[in-house]
Amino acid sequence: MRFAKVRRGANDVGVVRVDDQNRAFALDLASRAGVGSLADLLASPDPAALAIELTAPGTPAEALDTLALLPPVDRQEIWAAGVTYKRSKVAREEESVGAAQFYDKVYSAARPELFMKATPERTTGPGGPIRVRRDSKWSVPEPELTLVVSPDLRIVGYTVGNDVSSRDIEGENPLYLPQAKIYHGSCAVGPVVTLASAMPPLADVTIRLVIRRGGKVGFEGETSVSSLNRTVESLVEWLGRENHFPTGVLLMTGTGIVPPDEFTLSSGDVVDITISGIGTLSNPVA
């Protein structure tokens, strides 16, 4: 089962459940006390059963692609992990020669690199624009399997994430990481949340990135979650150490696809990230 947030009017935001035929069924959140958002639904002990309960008899099916989709996040922070794929490790060593030893160490260390990526207000959804920093000359998308985690640190679902990054700013000095990673328009998630129980085995999940420029493919690449150097459970366990997420949290798990050094995102590009079991997150570059 999958879930999506939809906008039906200026002040009308709802939640739908999505079946295998991409048919969406509106959920009546008002019918259950304590369930007022997608985050509340995902924090429940059994989101799938609760979603069926919240589907009123006779609820008509709607085609998912006819709905205005919002990022599937409410009040949760969005965090990210870095250097979790060998390709990412190599790329970051190349972009910052002076700090290469640190990227090598964190790749094999027990403690992962974790950083806060965005708040809901800074997050873009399906079809929304992403941005590159005006003071960056080398920016790339980072397609990432994103964990949807409940307040009690259960991985309840998965979505697609785009951790847009300024490689030249981070490469100049690793201490500039927050500026390279955290700025307006640097984070996109969606289009849906697939419950963990509905996902294929993670070892079989593929991530595909296609960047179109002027109607033509400017770059494309693919990787598999099987290449992830850490387990998703260990990333959540580390994130939860000395941290408290009362409304849950989303955690991007790192990228294994890195465009060549001569490639940088440009205004007008369209970035498509497809993850098996979830769908495609598409965003134009503003």
Rank of each mutant, 00 (worst) to 15 (best):
R2P: 05
R7D: 11
A10Q: 14
A10F: 14
V15D: 04
D19L: 04
D19K: 14
R23C: 07
L27E: 08
L29H: 03
L29W: 05
A30Y: 11
A30S: 15
R32N: 08
A43G: 09
P45R: 11
D46N: 15
P47W: 01
A48M: 10
A48H: 12
A51N: 12
I52C: 07
A63C: 12
A63E: 14
A63G: 06
L64Q: 03
L64K: 01
P72G: 14
P72A: 09
V73T: 07
R75W: 08
E77I: 02
E77S: 12
A80R: 01
A81D: 01
A81Y: 03
R87H: 07
S88V: 02
E95G: 08
A99L: 05
Y103H: 10
Y103S: 12
S108R: 11
E113M: 13
L114R: 03
F115K: 04
M116L: 15
R122A: 14
T124I: 06
T124F: 10
E142A: 08
E142Y: 11
E144H: 02
T146Y: 09
T146W: 08
P151I: 10
L153S: 08
V156N: 05
T159C: 05
T159A: 03
V160H: 00
S165N: 10
E170Q: 13
E172V: 07
L175C: 08
Y176E: 07
A180L: 01
I182A: 13
Y183P: 04
Y183C: 03
Y183G: 04
H184A: 13
S186G: 07
C187I: 12
V189N: 00
L195Q: 07
A198P: 04
P200K: 10
P201E: 15
I207D: 00
I211P: 01
I211Y: 00
F219G: 09
E220L: 06
S224P: 00
N229R: 11
N229D: 10
N229G: 15
R230A: 09
T231W: 06
S234M: 00
V236E: 09
L239A: 02
L239E: 04
L239C: 04
L239H: 02
L239Q: 00
G248A: 03
G248R: 00
L250A: 03
T253R: 00
G254C: 10
T255F: 00
I257E: 00
P259L: 13
D261W: 12
F263S: 02
L265T: 07
D269K: 00
V270P: 05
S276C: 07
G279A: 10
A286S: 15
A286G: 13
